[in-house]
Nucleic acid binder design. Structure first.
Length: 289
DNA sequence: AACGTAACCAACCGCCACTCT
DNA sequence: GAGAGTGGCGGTTGGTTACGT
């Protein structure tokens, strides 16, 4: 596959020991060598590339460095809400097929997506004390997290005056049950949905003056960022499927009937809650259920 | 300021599938 | 068809940074 015997670089027969292969973080010089070599000769045939370029690295290491870091079209920086939504959706479809998922996020690498999943998504599953592949967690993602992200994306585009420009990736996604329509039954104002039977397919949103969509993006924030900074206090949007017959929240997690219920089985957010918050949260829960 | 912990992410490892000889 | 070499993928690890006490 790699064209043995091709390329004509003199050191092709050297063993790894002879090469005295380097490991660990790449230096700037190594990066430069790799980039220059690929600019001249193109990528591929990584083992011979590594040898011919004079890099004391394995072909695999060179390939990884190029694909995950040096490639000019690699996109760096925070995963946007839009990308988060896409990752959640595609993962629910394909599972841990990181490279396949990455193909749908231009500039993002499978490694980056994998890291995002492991550090952010699995963290929430852990906090919820359930398996990341469990139905409960998938439901939580689908009915709570993903609609939340949709809200944020739409609010952001509205705020930037580009309400006409719904992100294209969103258009390819299934119609999520909007958070707000879920909570309508509970009579809790949050984000006013502009939904009528006529336009429900487009489920456009407007935000109230007092409600600002959180700049923070995850389940934890959704549950916990309460009356601070104008957010609706946590569990206002539980779909019926997530309510137990007794009205307690998300019975799938089988929380003990203690104050823990307030936290959904998760640890409270760091230093952002006090007893007043907890009391308010409980009041809302009682009203709702 | 010092220390401990958590979060993040680049890099490595092992496995499998594919291609070439 | 068998074996070797390689690329690609997903899982894991370890170093670094950020944050809290």
């Amino acid at each position: 596959m790699d064209g043995h015997g091709r390329g004509g670089c003199s050191s092709e027969t050297q063993s790894e020991e002879e090469m005295d292969l380097r490991r660990g973080p790449w230096t700037m010089e190594e990066d430069l060598i790799l980039v220059n070599y690929i600019a001249d000769h193109g990528e591929g045939r990584w083992n011979s590339l590594a040898r011919c370029a004079g890099l004391k690295r394995t072909g695999k290491s060179c390939r990884l460095r190029w694909l995950n870091y040096l490639r000019p079209d690699v996109r760096r920086g925070n995963i946007t809400p839009e990308e988060q939504l896409l990752i959640l959706e595609l993962h629910s479809r394909w599972g841990n097929r990181w490279s396949k998922i990455a193909q749908h996020l231009p500039g993002r690498t499978d490694n980056e997506i994998k890291n995002y999943w492991r550090t952010r998504v699995q963290k929430h599953a852990k906090q919820l004390k359930c398996d990341v592949n469990s139905k409960q967690f998938k439901d939580a993602m689908r009915y709570l997290w993903m609609p939340r992200l949709v809200e944020r994306i739409r609010a952001a585009s509205a705020a930037s005056g580009s309400t006409q420009n719904t992100p294209t990736t969103l258009q390819n996604l299934p119609a999520y049950q909007p958070l707000t329509s879920i909570c309508n039954d509970f009579g809790v104002p949050q984000v006013k949905p502009n939904i009528t039977p006529e336009n429900s397919s487009t489920d456009s949103f407007v935000t109230t003056n007092t409600h600002v969509v959180s700049p923070i993006s995850d389940l934890t924030d959704y549950y916990f960022h309460g009356n601070h900074n104008g957010f609706q206090t946590a569990p206002v949007s539980c779909p019926e499927s997530l309510l137990s017959p007794s009205g307690s929240f998300y019975h799938g997690f089988e929380l003990p009937p203690t104050e823990q219920n307030v936290w959904f089985g998760m640890d409270p957010p760091e230093n952002t809650w006090n007893m007043e918050d907890i009391w308010l949260l409980q009041q809302q829960q009682q009203q709702m259920c």
